[in-house]
């Protein structure tokens, strides 16, 4: 009789808390089930409470890896973008979340790891390491990276400058970059408020861009970041936002 090979998970010796912290995560059907159920509830709530609406949904329809780039004023932004994805892609969609904010306290860690499936992004130190993690994820098809290149939630609702890291990630890489604008999230749940308010939310999905032909030097990277910011800004102006 041939010997059976047990394909044990690599994190058997880790405590449950460490398992939440690790990335990439091991597949877990219980977590997937819970995530899908919560995602359905969030979708329902967004539609009812915030009259959530998606414009340009067809721009997300692809089986390739994607980078979604959006403005960031509120925690609702991530939820809106996740609500625009089909449920079965949810477990391959990774919103980049600040590891100094989301991966420290236990409740936030649990929400980030289980509900949002966040990617821990070290935005202060080891940015390069986090970026190379993103690059590795993009290699396997069907990965969706959600990145807020402003680096933090805007406190005024204005679009801040984009960090150049986004340029470094997509330059010279054949991956569609989808600019998105989330309208109303600043009014609905600004930074510092405890609970969201029932304000109208709209997600405007722009046409995908591709930077496969771009070089990877500093100038071009910064130019890409500026161009993406311009693309997001244009979505805002074109769709008559406040």
């Amino acid at each position: 009789m041939k010997k059976w090979r047990y394909d044990s998970s690599r994190d058997l010796e880790r405590t449950p808390l460490d398992r939440l912290r690790q990335f990439p995560r091991e597949p877990d059907i219980l977590v997937y089930g819970l995530r899908s159920i919560v995602a359905l509830i969030i979708r329902g709530l967004l539609r009812i409470y915030n009259r959530f609406e998606i414009i340009g949904h067809e721009n997300l329809r692809t089986n390739r890896s994607l980078v979604i780039v959006a403005n960031h004023c509120s925690h609702l932004d991530t939820l809106c973008l996740l609500a625009a994805l089909p449920l079965r892609k949810l477990h391959r969609a990774f919103p980049a979340a600040a590891s100094d904010y989301f991966f420290q306290s236990v409740p936030r860690l649990w929400i980030a790891a289980v509900i949002v499936n966040a990617l821990p992004f070290a935005r202060q130190m080891r940015v390069r390491q986090s970026l190379s993690l993103c690059e590795q994820l993009l290699i396997s098809p069907g990965t969706i990276l959600i990145i807020f290149p402003e680096g933090t939630r805007s406190t005024t609702g204005e679009l801040r400058e984009f960090k150049s890291g986004i340029g470094a990630l997509v330059a010279g890489r054949d991956v569609p970059v989808v600019p998105c604008f989330i309208d109303g999230s600043f009014l609905a749940w600004p930074k510092g408020k405890r609970l969201p308010r029932p304000r109208k939310l709209r997600l405007i999905v722009g046409a995908p861009l591709n930077y496969r032909a771009c070089g990877r030097d500093k100038m071009e990277i910064c130019a890409i970041a500026a161009e993406l910011r311009e693309a997001v800004n244009e979505l805002r102006q074109r769709n008559g936002s406040n």
């Binding site: 090979r5 394909d7 044990s8 998970s9 058997l12 091991e26 597949p27 877990d28 997937y32």
Partner: peptide, 10 residues
């Protein structure tokens, strides 16, 4: 399931 590798089979 995690120890025996069965967890990969949903």
């Amino acid at each position: 399931a995690r120890a025996s590798g069965l967890y990969r089979d949903w």
